[in-house]
């Protein structure tokens, strides 16, 4: 395969970081992040550390600020306060190492472009304004489409795709960036079972390549199966850590308030370190 190798150890870059020790190796570290619309905070003074190894889920009720946390960390929406480091560097200096997968419902799929064009958007930063996209970059983009099982759709107009296929194309675009940190906003929202499997397989493959994966996730039933770490949020940080110790009934109760039935919770979560 024609994959470029990239340095994966942040400290190689020779940058001194003044923040807490944990952020030295963390893939994504957020300190005091606050986002507010008017004077109503969407997320308030959030500290979060997402490990460089394994897959992390951001979990919380609707309106808890899960997507907002990702977007604000990336600078997609303005933040009121807080700083964000990626592999120990300020986020603005680490753009090339970050791949973002927005919610597929957030764009107009009638836009005049093809599947291949969308995947190649992941290469725009690398090739620049006028760099060639034919040849090797195109082969690479095709490889990425292949990894999500969409190679046959390269020439399709994006308006013809189903919801699950749209999600896979967005994932392929992120893969094309060949980043070290993958941030996904609800990658399993509204997709078919086959897509969910395809996406999770790709994410697990990324994990085995020592890439960091952080996903906003809404399906409590699959948190234990899919993820290694979990970050519970409801405007403020509720808890974070390995799923085995963090994804507990108490913590979920704290995040969701009375909105989850207790019997239901017991089936989903780790109780007293069981499982």
């Amino acid at each position: 395969m024609s994959r470029a190798t990239q340095p994966t150890i942040a400290s190689d870059r020779g940058r001194t970081v003044e923040t807490a020790n944990a952020s030295q190796d963390a893939a994504l570290s957020v300190r005091g992040l606050t986002v507010a619309y008017g004077e109503k905070p969407a997320i308030f003074s959030v500290d979060a550390t997402f490990e460089a190894d394994g897959m992390s889920a951001i979990v919380g009720p609707n309106g808890a600020g899960k997507s907002t946390l990702l977007k604000a960390a990336l600078g997609v929406i303005p933040r009121l306060s807080g700083d964000v480091h990626v592999f120990g560097e300020p986020v603005a200096d680490a753009r090339a190492r970050i791949a973002y997968v927005p919610q597929s419902a957030s764009v107009d799929w009638d836009f005049p472009t093809t599947v291949m064009d969308v995947v190649q958007m992941g290469l725009y930063r690398k090739v620049g304004l006028l760099g060639r996209l034919a040849g090797q970059p195109r082969d690479w983009a095709r490889d990425c489409l292949d990894r999500v099982g969409m190679a046959d759709f390269a020439g399709r107009q994006i308006g013809q795709l189903s919801g699950g296929q749209q999600q896979r194309v967005f994932l392929a675009r992120a893969l094309a960036q060949d980043a070290d940190l993958y941030l996904l906003d609800e990658p399993f929202a509204g997709v078919d079972a086959a897509t969910e499997r395809a996406v999770i397989d790709v994410l697990k493959a990324l994990k085995s390549e020592n890439k960091a994966v952080v996903a906003v996730h809404h399906d409590l039933a699959t948190v234990l199966d899919y993820f290694d770490h979990v970050f519970l949020i409801n405007v403020r940080r509720i808890a974070e850590g390995p799923v085995a110790t963090t994804f507990t009934t108490d913590n979920l109760q704290a995040a969701y308030g009375g909105r989850l039935a207790a019997t239901h919770l017991d089936e989903l979560t780790v109780v007293d370190g069981a499982r």
């Binding site: 977007k71 990336l74 600078g75 997609v76 603005a92 753009r95 970050i98 973002y100 927005p102 957030s106 764009v107 107009d108 836009f111 472009t113 969308v118 958007m121 725009y124 930063r125 304004l129 006028l130 675009r173 941030l183």
Partner: peptide, 21 residues
């Protein structure tokens, strides 16, 4: 013509464009 890539990106998916920097 020169700016067609960034302009396409912003027109199609401005959040992704912002995330790319």
């Amino acid at each position: 013509w020169l700016m067609r890539r960034p302009m396409t990106l912003v027109a199609f998916d401005s959040a992704y464009a912002a995330a790319l920097g």
